[in-house]
Computed example of a mutant assay.
Amino acid sequence: MFKIFFNPTRQMPTALGLVVVLCFTLSAPTQAVAQADGGKPEFIATTQRWLDNAVSNIRPAGAAPLRMEVAVGELDSRLRLAPCARIEPYIPVGTRLWGKTRLGLRCLEGSAKWNVFLPVTVRAYGLAWVVQGNVAPGAVLTEADAIEAEVDWAEEASPIVSNASQWVGQVASRALATGQAVRQGMIKPAQVFQAGTQVRVVAQGAGFQVTSDGQALSAGVVGQAARVRMDNGRVMSGVVLDGRTVRLEL
Rank of each mutant, 00 (worst) to 15 (best):
P83H: 14
S212Q: 14
M12N: 04
V140H: 00
I58Q: 07
V228K: 02
L141M: 08
A32Q: 11
A203Q: 12
R67E: 07
A112D: 07
Q198W: 06
L51K: 04
L16C: 02
D52C: 06
V161S: 02
T101K: 10
Q184L: 09
F5I: 13
F2K: 15
K100Q: 14
I91G: 02
R183N: 01
E249F: 01
G238C: 10
R102H: 15
Q170L: 10
P65A: 05
Q224E: 07
T101W: 14
R102Y: 15
I58E: 03
G169K: 03
A136N: 07
G38C: 06
Q191G: 03
T142M: 01
M12W: 11
E148R: 15
D213V: 06
Y125S: 06
C84F: 07
W50N: 06
A15K: 12
S165F: 09
Q184P: 02
V199I: 12
W114S: 10
L18S: 04
V201N: 05
P92S: 08
F6D: 07
R96N: 08
G17S: 12
V192C: 02
R80S: 12
D76C: 09
Q11F: 08
N115A: 15
R102V: 13
V93M: 14
A61Q: 14
L250I: 11
T101Q: 11
G179N: 05
A219I: 10
V19M: 14
I160P: 00
Q224H: 13
T211D: 11
G126K: 05
D242Y: 13
A71D: 12
P137D: 05
G73K: 12
A128N: 07
G243S: 14
F208S: 10
P8C: 10
D242Q: 05
V201Y: 05
A219L: 09
M1Q: 13
R200D: 09
Y125R: 12
N163C: 03
I87H: 11
S212R: 14
I44G: 00
